[in-house]
Design a binder for these strands. Structure first.
Lengths: 199, 199
DNA sequence: TATATTTGCTAACAGTGTTAACTTAAATTT
DNA sequence: AAATTTAAGTTAACACTGTTAGCAAATATA
């Protein structure tokens, strides 16, 4: 009996439809003004139908958070494979991170700006732990190589992440998307960061 | 005729009452659930009265943003006066910044988390330009001293601010308020930052 | 074909920010 | 002091928001 399967397929289809129209609304009007009624009218169903696919509005936004981290992870992975040394990889990661934040502002805002409920989220969502793993890998390589000083890779990860996110925030806030200054700041950052874990 | 003056005084009094009860609500229930009706019932007036003192709700929150930057500026100034060298001042600023963010989470969230309308705000609000001046002063001192390389103080300010804010964000997100790790990361940051502007 | 189940709808509840219209109180002018 | 003007504060509404209970219709199972 393929009926059940067809139903599952249909359900999945409308679920993705909801996400698709939601994303269109987010891009057009900002995620602040995404509403259940707007979604409902876009998918040409009544409002309660949405609740058959998502427990609440937050779950829809959370889906985008995960989607965003997946995209970010892909971008980061794509940036590392080309590089040879761990140091070059770290630098490439930093550039890729900033490029992602600059070109996917809606995603980035959702990923970080949603009132930061992330205390539990960091551990629970797979996409986020994958993200930290990607950043951690080349850091581990460098820290292991030089055993003169004992440096905690997890601490260095935090340093690196703080650096990147801070730069994105301030850049975003200044409304300055001329990458001139940013690249200089980033270069500055990355080089001193790498120097900090090497010696 | 002191009537007009008394009226001005009364008006100012209820304005401050609005801010006072609003802040109480923010601290108790979070700024997300601050509402005009809650404010109205707290001040024992009807809702439209609030609009005689503030054009809209955002203006109330903006008042807290300014208040927050004033408090931050005070904390930063208090931290610098004790220090002798510019390098020590920079380090003290960094610690004071993190301490402020840790102890005044509500303020910090409002100052940065309000959907970042700050594009115009950065230039327009006096408290923010005062803030940047405070950070900029010791940076300028160090950059001027060493004329071997030409470093842009404004760029270094961005680097410094990014560093601090990024660290606050990630710390906040991790829900980790044990200052052990943070202090190590911050020390790491500050030293490499100072090294970056010296040579 | 009759029964059970899922699906989708309308309408409502309890909120939100904001504002127009009206009443009451206060201050000014005659 | 009385009449008029001005300011203050109220109620009630508008247009939204997320969420859910109750009911009708379409579908799948027995």
């Amino acid at each position: 009996m393929g009926i059940a399967e067809r139903k599952i397929r249909e359900k999945e289809a409308t679920r993705e439809l909801i996400l698709r129209v939601s994303w269109r609304i987010v891009k057009q009007q900002g995620w602040q003004s995404l509403s259940m009624r707007k979604i409902a009218s876009s998918i040409e169903y009544s409002v309660p139908v949405i609740y058959n696919h998502f427990p609440n509005k937050e779950a829809i936004l959370l889906a985008f958070v995960k989607q965003g981290f997946q995209k970010l992870n892909n971008a980061l992975c794509g940036a590392t494979v080309k590089q040879q040394s761990a140091e070059q990889r770290i630098e490439a990661l930093a550039y890729a991170y900033l490029r992602f934040a600059a070109t996917n502002t809606e995603y980035y805002q959702l990923m970080y700006g949603m009132g930061m409920p992330s205390c539990k989220m960091v551990r629970e969502t797979a996409e986020l732990s994958a993200f930290t793993d990607i950043l951690l890998a080349p850091i581990r390589l460098v820290t292991c190589k030089n055993k003169s000083k004992e440096v905690d890779p997890l601490m260095k990860l935090r340093t690196f992440w703080s650096m990147l996110h801070g730069l994105v925030c301030i850049t975003h806030m200044a409304g300055d998307h001329s990458d001139d200054q940013n690249k200089t700041v980033l270069k500055d950052f990355v080089h001193s960061f790498i120097a900090g874990i090497k010696n």
